[in-house]
Design a protein around this nucleic acid. Structure first.
Lengths: 250, 250
DNA sequence: CACTGTTCGCAACGCCGTACAGTGTGCGGT
DNA sequence: ACCGCACACTGTACGGCGTTGCGAACAGTG
């Protein structure tokens, strides 16, 4: 015979959960909450259990909406790139200055990566993001901008590769640096001050790096990272433009 | 009671291992074996237990030579970049064609990343590699090459940022793609054939991507990835050179 | 009522990184 | 000849992880 403790009282027992009014969980909800964890506490803080807990659900319930963690991460990456504001290339004529527009897009991509530095840690696992809707939208915009500037499609594709390649690489390096700082809970300037002496010590035998880090080649090294990226994009666009002109006249 | 087969005879048993002659394990050994695992079976196959087993040692013995797994990975990354052959910039005069030399270095970096695609997965966790000896050697070489081509140090640093940024980004994208393939055990062409239809389907509403993928904009899209990278580097160097000339004459 | 299909979560499996206490060993000092 | 320390190394254990199997709870349909 069951003792009274074995079965919680009829009255204190929680109301039978009225489930299935509509599914309690949705893929969208899950991805959104995952993003909150990723942005708030970084990649190593995201676990299926924690994610489930945040949604008042069991960890394994995620798997009815998402195949596995990798797929979840891919969805998260696509979502953040979906937030990227892009110029409307359908309406209106060609933009007055295509360089400005392209630069704006590249800076947008960099901003997304810096705002969500965990992206760098999953770049290697989600090779298929480039076929996701957000990334396709981005690519199409780039191609449209370049075509409107007079590039043939194949040429535009090549240029896009250079621009996005640089953007991803440069932003990844920055993001890695920033999240290394964040993991150690240091401020950027503070950490630099603290690390610089040993770095300088390590540049014995590397005279150029030594000059660079000791600041003898200032003032522009200390220029902000924003300016550094901007001038990098400018260099790449110079190359793109030069090749384009050479092709038209050749 | 133990039977005679259970314990090899006292006399035939190998001499008791004379430990402490020198440590059985070394950091170098550990990193080398870790690299073997990484290159052979990918990043998710590397665990401290497996690594220990490969070295006939307990998992936790690694920790006397390496602070933690992250440090181990950082050492591994530095080691593979150490294998990169670099031109000797100390001896002899300036290279006849600095573009060729710089291009060679960039292609070397790409080759390292493609040969060890797990690097991409740890890029985000090892922000400090850029202060490791191998990367410093690489940077110093780049700066030397550019200086010998007439660049001021700060200008050279800027150019290096653009070139390495592009190289890292482009190679990372490639490596992510390749290791996604490897994880699924597919051949590249086979996978492309299999995936292309659905990708094309997904490019409704993206006319330029559609043209690109359906091959109406061939022939050069199907050009190998090697050529694609080479032309990207060429674009970046065009930009670098143009900016340099503008600065000299301006 | 029975039947079907879906959502959800408990329990469990086999991993993982690593903290910690303990074991044997060689070396320097006495 | 002895002691004690420093050190490389190990077994065990802790708390976590991603994922699966399975059954319970439910909605919709007949």
């Amino acid at each position: 015979m069951a003792r009274s403790e074995d079965i919680p009282s009829l009255w204190t027992r929680p109301q039978r959960p009225r489930r299935r009014e509509q599914p309690a969980l949705s893929r969208e909800q899950i991805v959104t909450e995952a993003l909150a964890i990723l942005d708030g506490d970084g990649i190593e803080a995201l676990s299926m259990r924690k994610l489930g807990a945040r949604l008042n659900a069991g960890a394994t319930s995620m798997y009815t909406h998402v195949a596995n963690k990798d797929e979840l991460l891919a969805l998260a990456v696509d979502q953040v790139f979906g937030e990227l504001p892009l110029p409307d290339t359908d309406a209106g004529p060609a933009p007055a200055d295509w360089r400005e527009a392209v630069t704006g897009c590249a800076e947008g991509v960099r901003a997304v990566i810096l705002r969500h530095p965990w992206i760098v840690s999953v770049l290697g696992d989600v090779g298929l993001v480039y076929f996701g809707p957000s990334w396709m939208r981005l690519s199409e915009t780039f191609l449209a901008l370049l075509e409107s500037a007079g590039f043939e499609l194949v040429e535009a594709n090549e240029a896009m590769g250079a621009i996005l390649g640089y953007t991803i690489g440069a932003a990844s390096v920055e993001a890695a640096w920033l999240s290394a700082l964040a993991r150690r809970g240091r401020d950027e300037q503070e950490w630099l001050d603290q690390l610089l002496p040993s770095v300088i010590e390590a540049t014995k035998g590397h005279p150029r790096l030594h000059r660079l880090y000791t600041g003898q080649a200032q003032p522009e090294v200390a220029r902000g990272r924003d300016d550094g990226f901007a001038s990098g994009v400018r260099l790449v666009l110079d190359g793109v433009e030069a090749a384009h002109r050479a092709r038209r006249s050749g």
